[in-house]
Design a protein around this nucleic acid. Structure first.
Lengths: 358, 358
DNA sequence: CCGCATTGTGCGAGCGCTAACATCTGCGCC
DNA sequence: GGCGCAGATGTTAGCGCTCGCACAATGCGG
């Protein structure tokens, strides 16, 4: 047994020595096995197994001038959708043979973002994936003239080669359409924060759908951020609009807070008000009431993100795929307007209070 | 302007040439500046700025025989607590000058875990952090004889050098104590999945606190996993125990499902039953009713994880820190047992139904 | 039998950096 | 005035791998 001294790992030369070939042949067995004769190959493979040899990725990266690493930038907020995207991308990248170096920033301001990206660049990443890409992030990327391919994971209207996303516009339409089909005519929108590209697209979709149906779109209510707290705070605003019978909230989190706030305002969902969320996080099925929402397939998104990145890195054309469309999940937070009226008539107290408001 | 050809980055030799020194002096300016004269230093620094030079971390890693990278293993489940830990650790690691390579596994079975760890090892990571460390994971680590330091982020009773965690045992006690002090004497426990170390500690804490107070601990109810669905399913079991007046759920997610299930069973929280959760995720404040829970400081945990890792890597002693203890956040899902009885008396129907059950 | 592909393998250089050693200068001191 | 020594810098040799090329061995047509 030619045991390696503990700690220091075997190198290609070690393997070569053991198999009676040069280190170069070992390299070939690993990278272009078809150029090596069957038997030599086997001998080398045996030696590799014996020595538990793993090629040193660092040395390989240096020699190849390719790090095999993709940088992943994300914000420090533990948002369900972000986590899902990160995990899905990470799995896809590993499957494709890439390593992923993560750089999360506490706040998504230009300075931290710049810092994160520079750290990544210094690591020789071959590409960068932006998990949460707001306007600001895109500006930063531009101003830095990042020397590697960048892929965004957020909707920006046109889904281009560097922008892989689930169609948020269509999602917004679906939410509005669902509500309109239930007979609602005064459909408010609790919009996500202004800097979010996804939020803007959802809003656009909601507005487009309504106008196509000849329903006037009300001025959206803006949440300061994605937290349920923000959603909660908007409840009083909505309670002050007695004509509104439905709300499309731009995320499940926002909807959760809204549901809570609405209850505190003495309004019942779905009797007084229908609510639709967006994201499809598993918790939503257990909200009070279970939330009708727009579900997104984040796992597929992660795979496609990696696909787009791979295409850029390997210079191939991006495979033409059907657009990634979200899905309406109907639960208990939405009801027909007529039913709502009926139910309201049955139990007077709250409904009465409501109708007389402002 | 001696512009670099686009794409290829400047090297130390380039910088050296520009500053009129050897590449080695450039290296010294970066790594041991005190050995270089003031003026030379300045000239080199200027050249670095001019050429926008960033040292190539890959080459550095090869030469130093240290990758400067820490591997982070996590499960593919977008659990709030996991995400928080990951993000917090990532930020701390970056602050300490380390890169972090992420490897998330779809399922935490031995095979995928082994694969993830081997990928990381092949990347020459200097250490590995396990974000979700169940029994199985620890066994895998042992069986692999991982050649680098490993740190776990989950409670395992004794918090040792390789196990940094928020004290789950104490958290369990706090939950039980809160309920006991409200006068409850039949306090059920909806335990997390059996493989979770954290879950076991919370259970141990609950049980220890009760027995110290002379309150018999009931057989815990086991959730299959951490999902709210699992929590929901256990509601009927709890409804079938009319003597129980309080439940300590092992996570906020579980509690969310439980709250929903309890409502479907016609039981009101906190009138019929008090519920305490665990984790302190921001959503919990907006559950129905807002959930009393045990909040954990994940940001600090992340920092300490990195601290422990740094200590191992640099061979220093781990700084002695006060234990990381969670915090009780009282909201509306818990009430005194007496109040509960009173309230129950007021509104007969549900309570009556309840008392006559099984 | 020679020339010339074709296949299999080895040799040497080099990726960009660090570490160890070598060199060179200036200065204090006996 | 030569010695020693410290400070500042250069030189050289790797780190473990890949790439380009050289080279040997084989096969095959003319």
């Amino acid at each position: 047994m030619t045991e390696q001294p503990a700690g220091s790992r075997a190198t290609m030369s070690d393997v070569g020595k053991r198999a009676g070939v040069s280190h170069q042949t070992v390299s070939r067995v690993l990278n272009e096995p078809w150029r090596v004769s069957r038997e030599t190959q086997q001998r080398v493979l045996d030696a590799i197994a014996d020595l538990k040899f793993h090629p040193n990725t660092v040395a390989r990266a240096l020699a190849r001038q390719r790090s095999g690493t993709i940088g992943m930038v994300s914000t420090g907020i533990a948002l369900h959708s972000h986590s899902k995207r990160m995990i899905a991308f990470n799995e896809a990248a590993r499957a494709a043979g890439y390593q992923v170096s993560m750089a999360s920033v506490a706040t998504a301001d230009a300075v931290s973002l710049r810092d994160a990206i520079e750290t990544l660049i210094a690591q020789n990443v071959e590409g960068i994936v932006l998990i949460a890409a707001d306007e600001g992030a895109i500006d930063v990327m531009r101003s830095l003239a990042v020397p590697v391919p960048v892929v965004f994971a957020e909707s920006s209207g046109r889904s281009g080669p560097d922008n892989v996303s689930i169609d948020q516009f269509v999602g917004g339409r679906m939410a509005a359409a669902h509500l309109a089909e239930l007979g609602h005519r005064q459909i408010a929108h609790l919009a996500g924060p202004g800097w979010s590209l996804d939020a803007s697209e959802r809003l656009r979709g909601w507005s487009a759908e309504l106008s196509e149906r000849g329903i006037p779109a009300r001025t959206p209510i803006r949440a300061a951020d994605w937290t349920p707290d923000s959603g909660y705070r908007t409840a009083s605003l909505i309670a002050a609009m007695p004509e509104v019978t439905a709300v499309f909230a731009s995320s499940d989190q926002l909807a959760l807070g809204l549901l809570h706030g609405l209850e505190d305002q003495g309004l019942r969902v779905p009797q007084d008000l229908s609510v639709v969320g967006f994201d499809g996080q598993p918790e939503a099925a257990h909200f009070h009431p279970p939330l009708t929402t727009i579900r997104q397939d984040f796992a597929e998104l992660g795979r496609r993100l990696m696909g787009a990145m791979a295409a850029k890195l390997e210079g191939e054309a991006l495979p033409e795929l059907p657009p990634l469309v979200p899905e309406l999940v109907v639960r208990k937070s939405t009801a027909p307007r007529f039913l709502a009226a009926e139910l309201a008539a049955e139990s007077e107290p709250r409904a009465a209070r409501r109708r007389t408001k402002v």
